[in-house]
Simulated scan of single mutants.
Amino acid sequence: MSYEELAREIEKEGVELIESKFNSENIKGLYVDNIITVNSNISTEKEKKCILAEEIGHYYTSYGNILDQSKLENRKQERKARGWAYEKLVGIVDLINAFKYGVKNRYELSEYLNVTEEFIEEAIKYYKEKYGLYYQIDNYVVYFEPLAILERRE
């Protein structure tokens, strides 16, 4: 899925997408009142896609002003939105499909899924926290540390 495809998907939900230069380098995206703003200073398509996915995650999972991350409830909402983004762009089935395609390492996985390597690392950490060391689906076992996918033969 590309940045443009994500943008079209969220616009069908009635959410406006704007790209704008932010005064702060720390803020890469914001979601407020059915408007997602992505920092136009982001240099790569991959990073813009990851930021957009997280902001879409806020649309689906968050409420209120959660900018103050010193509050537990705000951190929980931030985690939920990021989890939504990880599952959207680096789903378990996506990992298996990458394995079937012949992807051998995180760099290749980043290229295959068109996301940043940092996003891959965070997604794997998220899955490890959610499922433990591994996850079984159909005839596959996805190990999160180290990242490996095994196909079970019966």
Score class of each variant (00 low, 15 high):
Gln77Asn: 06
Tyr107Ile: 15
Asn139Arg: 12
Phe99Gly: 00
Ser70Arg: 13
Phe144Cys: 09
Ile92His: 04
Phe119Trp: 08
Gly132His: 11
Val93Met: 02
Glu118Pro: 07
Glu129Val: 11
Glu55Pro: 07
Thr61Ser: 11
Phe99Ala: 04
Ile149Gln: 03
Glu145Cys: 08
Ala123Ser: 15
Glu54His: 14
Asn114His: 09
Lys80Thr: 07
Gly57Asn: 11
Gly57Gln: 06
Lys88Gln: 13
Asn139Met: 05
Leu95Tyr: 06
Glu121Gln: 13
Pro146Tyr: 00
Asn105Met: 09
Lys71Gly: 01
Tyr135Pro: 01
Tyr135Phe: 15
Leu133Ala: 14
Tyr86Gln: 01
Ala98Met: 03
Thr61Pro: 00
Tyr63Asp: 10
Ser62Val: 03
Tyr59Ile: 12
Gln69Asp: 14
Gly64Pro: 02
Pro146Phe: 04
Trp84Glu: 05
Gly91Thr: 09
Arg153Glu: 11
Asn97Cys: 08
Phe119Gly: 06
Gln69Ile: 15
Val90Trp: 01
Leu150His: 14
Glu108Ile: 10
Arg82Ala: 08
Leu109Gln: 00
Ala85Lys: 04
Arg153Leu: 14
Trp84Tyr: 15
Glu145Trp: 13
Glu87Asp: 00
Asn97His: 13
Phe119His: 07
Ala148Asp: 14
Leu72Pro: 08
Tyr59Pro: 09
Lys104His: 05
Arg75Tyr: 02
Phe99Ser: 00
Asp68Trp: 03
Tyr86Arg: 00
Tyr126His: 03
Lys104Ala: 05
Gly83Thr: 02
Arg106Trp: 00
Val141Arg: 13
Phe119Arg: 04
Glu73Gly: 03
Ile124Glu: 06
Leu95Met: 03
Trp84Arg: 07
Lys130Arg: 15
Tyr126Gln: 05
Tyr134Phe: 13
His58Phe: 04
Val115Gly: 05
Lys130Gln: 06
Leu67Asp: 12
Tyr143Leu: 05
Tyr134Gln: 11
Tyr86Thr: 01
Glu151Trp: 02
Leu133Gln: 12
Thr116Met: 05
Tyr135Ser: 00
